[in-house]
């Protein structure tokens, strides 16, 4: 069946395209500005194409930020790894091994998701100092793991809630216990859950600023701190576009099912 072009279709697509353009404007501005030579940059001509292409700002930014990118990568990968693994185990217990009080405990966990980071800032660096973790990446990783736990536990709990209980029971009858059910049944089934959670965590940690600036010494600064616009956004943007559909699913798992 061929779609007829009606007035409403035209209005519909016009609205869609206009909105898309509005959303792309900031990106356009960023890209052309970053291609301009410093002398070329001025407010009244901010929308115009650069007179000459100047790619040096990319190279400069990259050279300047290389250590920060490395830090951010180490930080993000480690923190994402630990928080998703722990979150997956927690979610497994909360979804499949409920015990008296587990729901209250879970609710108390969730609460941690919503605290403004400012509230814990001062005690956090005192504690990290006492643990001799202040200033370096391990301390920052610990912080991100801990404050990532509520959301990862939530996503995994909701994910595991969809796995039928009969699968667990069947495995119990087959002779599997707590850990063997996890490693042999639950874990192999949670790859999508891991993708979703890691993406969420990756984005959050990569973009985080306040702790990055307050909890690390210079040599351990993540990228947001050693920021230059387009460079900080690119890796996430890329990963995001590639794995977009998982991303959306993850957002949903984390927020809707509750």
């Amino acid at each position: 069946m061929k779609r007829k072009i009606t007035l409403s279709t035209i209005v519909f697509y016009a609205a869609l395209i206009l909105l898309a353009m509005a959303y792309l404007l900031p990106a356009y501005l960023t890209v052309i500005t970053s291609l301009k030579a410093p002398v070329d940059i001025s407010l009244p001509r901010s929308w115009e194409f650069p007179s000459t292409l100047n790619l040096s700002s990319f190279g400069d930014a990259f050279d300047l930020l290389r250590p920060n990118i490395v830090n951010s990568l180490i930080l993000t990968v480690c923190a994402t790894f630990f928080s998703t693994v722990l979150g997956s185990l927690n979610g497994y217990v909360f979804a499949k091994w409920r015990f008296p009080g587990s729901e209250i405990l879970f609710t108390l966990f969730l609460f941690g998701m919503f605290i403004p980071y400012q509230v814990v800032l001062i005690p956090l660096f005192h504690t990290l100092r006492a643990m001799h973790l202040y200033g370096g990446l391990p301390g920052l990783i610990l912080a991100h793991v801990v404050y990532g736990l509520p959301i990862t536990s939530l996503i995994f709990r909701n994910f595991y809630a969809q796995i039928p209980d009969s699968l667990m029971e069947s495995a119990t009858l087959d002779g599997a216990g707590f850990f063997s059910i996890y490693t042999r049944i639950i874990f192999p089934l949670s790859i999508p859950g891991f993708v979703v959670t890691s993406l969420w965590q990756f984005t959050q940690i990569w973009n985080e600023f306040l702790w990055g600036i307050c909890l690390t010494r210079h040599s351990a600064n993540p990228i947001t701190v050693g920021l230059a616009n387009i460079m900080a956004a690119l890796p996430v943007l890329l990963i995001y576009i590639l794995l977009g559909r998982y991303f959306i699913r993850g957002l949903l798992a984390g927020s809707v099912k509750e």
Partner: peptide
């Protein structure tokens, strides 16, 4: 359960996907 020497077939089969 595993030591009772029983086997069970579930309504939704509970096959490990």
């Amino acid at each position: 359960p595993k030591d009772r020497n029983v086997a069970m077939v579930f309504q939704n089969y509970a096959l490990y996907p």
